[in-house]
Design a protein around this nucleic acid. Sequence first.
DNA 1: CTTGGGACCTGGCTGC
DNA 2: TGCAGCCAGGTCCCAA
Length: 280
Amino acid sequence: MPYTSLAMPELPEVETIKNELSPLVVGQRFTQVTICDPKLVCGTSVEELGQGLVGQTIQSIERRGKYLIFNLSGGRSVIMHLRMTGTLLLNARVTSRYARAVFRLSNRTDLVFNDQRRLGLVWLVKDASTVIARLGPEPLAESFTPDVLAGLLEKHRIPIKATLLDQSIIAGIGNMYADEALFAARIHPLKKADALSPEEVATLCHHIGSVLRSAISGRGASVGTYVRPEGQLGSAQFHFKVAHRYGEPCPACGTAIKRISVRNRGTYFCSNCQRLTSRR
DNA sequence: CTTGGGACCTGGCTGC
DNA sequence: TGCAGCCAGGTCCCAA
């Protein structure tokens, strides 16, 4: 195993957390907020966050890109980003050394923000759009069509893999699902975004959707620290074709999966199925 | 403006 | 056996 790798929460994982957390915490009120790590809080003081939250009822949870948005009764919102290793756990039995915040709710459950690498962030804002303003379109929206994707890609002369990871171009795709979508579309990760043919753009658009939807139906991918709010693992990793499968045979042609670095990100692909230049 | 690279952060692995 | 140093990756920041 030459490479250790962690899977971090991308769109399907955050969507799963939203789906599974919503029925358990919507309608509940914050009764106590304990911030274990002040660096978690962004944009306000720790005190302001606690005072702003206690007494507020969670009215709904939304996802935008990889951000979770808790809409509160008073009109404000709590926004959370799990970054690399963040997890949200309900009623974690053991107080982990990685707990960065504990939110006690009116039904006496604890929502614990666990985060080994401490890169996750929490905001309390009047208007959620201030935090998520720079995000590109949602790849699972009906309005995300091949024409829209073509319009986004033609403006960039960087590797297609890099555009998929750029949250201001498309929101929610991370390293794992970028590799999976490019493999499904048979596109080399280093191919320049503006060099994709209309057919390639259409195929990629289709596979971005199918890869993300399939991962959501698998409740996310538990390769690293990701677990669902009640502690269960996801299963999407079992369906990965190339991501985290260095050296294994390509499921389509048997060629060993290669690993290269694109923009300092580990990138897995099949050099036979995904070519920079056309065949022969 | 676009693009690329480093910083942040920690645990696990490598290699001396 | 011990430990320094590298690496993973989402996002921000800065330099070219």
